[in-house]
Amino acid sequence: MSIGIHDIVGRVSYGCDVLFRVIQIKEENGKTIAILYGEDIRLVAHAPLDDLVKVNESERSARKQKNEEMVRHSLQLFSQDRELLDQKRRFEVSDGYRQQGDYFQIPGKVLHLDGDPSYLKKCMDVYEKIGIPVKGLYCNEKEMPSRITELLEMYRPDILVVTGHDSYSKSKGKMIDINAYRHSWHFVQTVREARKKIPQLDQLVIFAGACQSHFESLIAAGANFASSPSRVNIHALDPVYIVAKISFTPFMERIHVWDVLRNTLTGEKGIGGIETKGVLRTGMPYKSMEEEV
């Protein structure tokens, strides 16, 4: 069975553990090689064409259903957390506001840069469900460092997401060597440029990285949260759950790292970070447009 661009495949040598999209087919050292992007994880890989097998529709549907169940579970956990936050805020503001409807809240604004347009769409759909104000832009990982300053000036976000595809290659060097990673260096440079513009960790909260990214370098560059401490794969939606917690936590509260990680699909092996303030702000008076009519 021939394999072409955009086919959904698995790698036989890995037991078809991950579903990939075929992005490119090329000749390399006399072999036909396919460049692969993970369907649900932020991993880029390459494999000989003869190591690939097409995944049939029934298998794809079964895996899609399992993935959607994981996403629903994470959304449910986040919704529970948000309800607890809302209850706490309603209690705390009751002394300062005459009645429940006197105040309004502004969640943190997000600028999401993604190296994969299909992942970006998936993330934007979840941002919309959760109710987070976001500007999502597709941007090739290699172009992110040169574009970030202009984009920060243009959109003035409270939270920055820098993500896309990444992978570690043992043949290129040891795990501590950032040159052994496909895009970690570009993510690190992007974070550094962002910190030149906004140095304070609580003025701009940054999530950076993708599958197997060089976690230590990203944190050292100035990211609040990053992947991947154990060099494992992360889910396409993990950045959304990170920033959602930050966006809806009041700016006077500090977020413990585990409180952020426990709602992700990957957990502490895939994502880590540092204690960070929330960015939600409360104001008054609240007046709906309906009251004006």
Rank of each mutant, 00 (worst) to 15 (best):
P133E: 02
D202P: 12
P133L: 05
Q189A: 07
G267T: 05
K26Y: 15
L120V: 01
L75D: 01
V93E: 11
P229S: 11
L137H: 12
V55L: 10
Y138N: 05
V18K: 14
G273E: 11
V240E: 00
I35E: 13
G30R: 05
R98G: 13
S58M: 10
E291H: 12
R147Q: 12
K277M: 14
G136K: 06
H112W: 13
L77P: 03
E143L: 11
L218C: 03
G131I: 06
E275V: 11
Y37I: 10
D114L: 05
I159V: 08
V12D: 09
M175D: 14
M124F: 04
Q76I: 00
L218I: 07
R156F: 05
V162E: 06
L19A: 07
L160F: 14
R89D: 03
S228N: 05
N29Y: 14
A223E: 07
I5A: 10
K109G: 04
N29M: 12
T276K: 07
S167V: 10
K64E: 13
F104C: 08
F251D: 10
D202W: 15
L36V: 06
M70H: 04
K245Y: 07
F91K: 09
P145H: 03
I35T: 13
D202I: 13
L280C: 07
G10E: 08
N179R: 11
G136I: 00
I219Q: 10
Y14I: 05
F91G: 00
S79Q: 08
H183Q: 13
H46P: 03
K26L: 15
G108Y: 06
Y103F: 15
G30M: 03
Y168E: 13
E292M: 09
V279I: 11
V162C: 08
E68Y: 03
Q203P: 09
V191R: 15
A210F: 02
D125C: 02
L113H: 08
A194E: 04
R63F: 03
G164M: 04
T249M: 04
L218D: 10
S171E: 11
L75Y: 02
L85G: 13
K197G: 10
V53F: 15
E291V: 12
L151D: 02
P48E: 14
D7S: 08
K129L: 09
S146L: 08
G30V: 06
V134P: 02
F248M: 03
Y127E: 01
E153S: 13
V110Q: 11
V22I: 06
L151T: 02
I130Q: 00
F248N: 03
I178L: 15
L218P: 07
K31Q: 14
G267S: 08
I274T: 10
L201Y: 15
Y155S: 00
R262G: 07
V9L: 09
I148W: 06
D114V: 00
D51R: 13
G278P: 01
Q24T: 13
G30N: 09
F78Y: 05
V53K: 15
S227E: 14
D102V: 06
A221W: 14
D86W: 14
K31C: 10
S2Y: 15
Q99D: 08
A226K: 12
I5C: 11
L137C: 04
L52T: 12
Y119P: 00
L85M: 09
I23A: 15
K121G: 03
I106P: 00
Q105D: 07
